[in-house]
């Protein structure tokens, strides 16, 4: 429960400790974000975020995030628990709209269209920006119906469905394992298979972007390896944003990495913020910010 007006919260945090790292934070925020994408002229910007704040009622969960997401790349969000990386991920398909009291301020621009305006229907946004969740969450239906559900809603014809199901499952490297039991319950699959089914379900509606919220956290190492291979293949067709706790995973599969951190204000409220956003190779070899370095070398978090 905060007594002070929301608008004043960002200023409060410039303490002696954070002032030292101020220059690196400026690098990733505001106007500086655009040139960074422009440096890599061959890529196209899918999301352009500028000064994004996320509130849950009066509580500021994420402060002032500005970054660009490039097409056909894998962007990883890393950072300690509670740093707001999942919160930020759910901004891209307006999943936060489903949480009572959640509010997004600032600008998230998707291919030139402001995402958070009344004219935009989150339902269509979620069709174009698909999502894979932390725990595999297949519908309690057959494998076939799990994949066909989204296309049906989007208006796919019955005659097209067989094709869509086969193509999506093939793309998710699951087809060979399930082709003979498409009509059986998805709950009969192993955890890793279920998560690949969820990926197939997400790409069945022909999205532009696939958001992945710690997709491997519930899986064993072998299943995790298969998902990572799959992500590398999928980025030729889709833009992928992935939240992960596992830094090695981020280093293995991502092109860009955003490191988020968390800061508590004097009332103990923990607010996440973006510390550093750079090509993955750079972040893991030569981080700009001491907090990033501390985190990736395992001294914090």
């Amino acid at each position: 429960m905060t007594q002070e007006p929301d608008a004043t919260v960002p200023e409060v945090t410039v303490t002696a400790e954070t002032a030292a790292s101020q220059h690196t934070r400026i690098d990733v925020s505001g106007a500086a974000a655009a040139p960074m994408a422009a440096n890599r002229a061959d890529t196209q910007t899918v999301f352009h975020c500028d000064g994004v704040h996320v509130y849950y009622a009066d509580f500021l969960a994420l402060r002032n995030v500005s970054l660009n997401i490039a097409a056909h790349e894998v962007t990883a969000f890393i950072g300690p628990s509670g740093c707001g990386k999942t919160t930020f991920l759910r901004c891209f398909n307006r999943m936060n709209d489903l949480i009572e009291g959640a509010r997004v301020e600032g600008s998230i621009n998707y291919h030139g269209v402001e995402l958070y305006q009344d004219e935009v229907d989150p339902v269509e946004v979620r069709r174009r920006v698909g999502m894979v969740f932390q725990k595999p969450n297949p519908f309690p239906k057959s494998i076939y119906d799990n994949i066909a559900y989204g296309p049906r809603l989007a208006g796919a014809k019955r005659s097209e469905l067989d094709d869509i199901v086969e193509r999506s499952l093939t793309r998710a490297a699951l087809w060979d394992e399930v082709r003979d039991r498409l009509k059986t319950s998805a709950y009969g699959l192993s955890g890793g298979q279920q998560q690949r089914l969820c990926i197939a379900r997400a790409i069945a509606v022909q999205p532009d972007v696939v958001l992945m919220d710690e997709p491997c956290s519930a899986l064993d190492p072998i299943a995790t390896g298969r998902i990572e291979e799959l992500i590398a293949e999928l980025k030729t067709e889709y833009t992928i944003i992935i939240v992960t706790h596992n830094m090695q995973q981020a280093a293995r599969i991502s092109d860009m990495t955003a490191f988020f951190s968390v800061q508590a204000n004097e009332m103990g409220q923990r607010t996440g913020e973006l510390v550093e956003y750079a090509p993955t190779s750079l972040i893991f070899t030569n981080p700009d910010d001491p907090r990033t370095e501390a985190y990736i070398t395992g001294r914090v978090g």
Partner: peptide, 25 residues
Amino acid sequence: PDSLREAAYGVGATKWEVLSRQVLP
């Protein structure tokens, strides 16, 4: 569970579609 609702919203279902085809069944 909410994960079922999220799964349906995640592939672009409207609220009515989430309720009528996933939650109610």
